[in-house]
Design a protein around this nucleic acid. Structure first.
Lengths: 130, 130
DNA sequence: GCTTGCCTTGACGTCGGCGTCAAGGCTTAC
DNA sequence: GTAAGCCTTGACGCCGACGTCAAGGCAAGC
């Protein structure tokens, strides 16, 4: 299949596929015209990349998964390097969530305090909740 | 005081202060040399901006707080517009945390499944993997 | 007078993951 | 033959909050 078809099957754009290729993630064969040619295997690789991206992985972090698939493994995460990426990402996500929750707590506290100072508002309809 | 001193007092850089000025957030008077001049009030404004930035607010979102302070209020969040920003940010943070936790759950599940498939790891030196 | 260290404006660089032209080639349908 | 719709490469744009460099002015100490 050609680039437009693959992009559509994966729910992405041709620009994205060319970008992946420029990063060395998703190589393509060429037909006589010079058009890029892909097969079902490429669709699998692409879907692996997209799935990871959707979970917050950077493009570089998807590389071990892609290489794992290309090495013939049944799944992108059937290789130790992929598992390392999983674990690292888990740590990053945990740290990030922690930061965000701390920020949320600070903001919530400031909001409560400031609302207590400001008598104006949506009427004394409610008292504690918002 | 001059820009370098203010930057140091606020734990930031002169570049940052000039950037804030270019965005219309932190104006400065000029002395005879053309050097920027600041006072204690500017330090308060700047600290308000930095505090909010540290909690994940975009620069534009700090504007109501700065204007509130400049209007003579004792705190940057003593104005309704600031409270609106607080509330909006709370919603954003909640949504973000939710997304991240969902991503975390997906990754954790994949990791567990993949680890179950891969017998290699901390103990058995090697059996299948290479 | 010369160096040092502050300041000025202006402008380009950074990071990630693409979007969006521009200019042109191939193929197919009419 | 010509318009439509695919494809090609190349290159600039975007977002946010600055970092960094360039070229030069001003003040102070020796």
């Amino acid at each position: 299949m050609r680039i437009g078809e693959l992009a559509e099957l994966a729910g992405t754009t041709t620009r994205t596929l060319r970008y992946y290729e420029s990063r060395g993630l998703l190589a393509a064969r060429r037909d006589e015209n010079g058009y890029r040619t892909y097969d079902e295997e490429d669709l699998r690789l692409l879907r692996q990349i997209r799935t990871l991206q959707d979970s917050g992985f950077e493009l570089e972090e998807t590389r071990p998964f892609v290489e794992c698939l290309r090495a013939g493994h049944p799944a992108g995460d059937a290789c130790p390097a992929s598992l390392d990426v999983y674990r690292r990402k888990l740590g990053e996500l945990d740290a990030l969530v922690e930061q965000l929750q701390a920020a949320r707590a600070r903001v919530a506290a400031r909001l409560l305090r400031a609302e207590a100072e400001l008598p104006g508002g949506p009427e004394p309809t409610c008292e504690l909740g918002g």
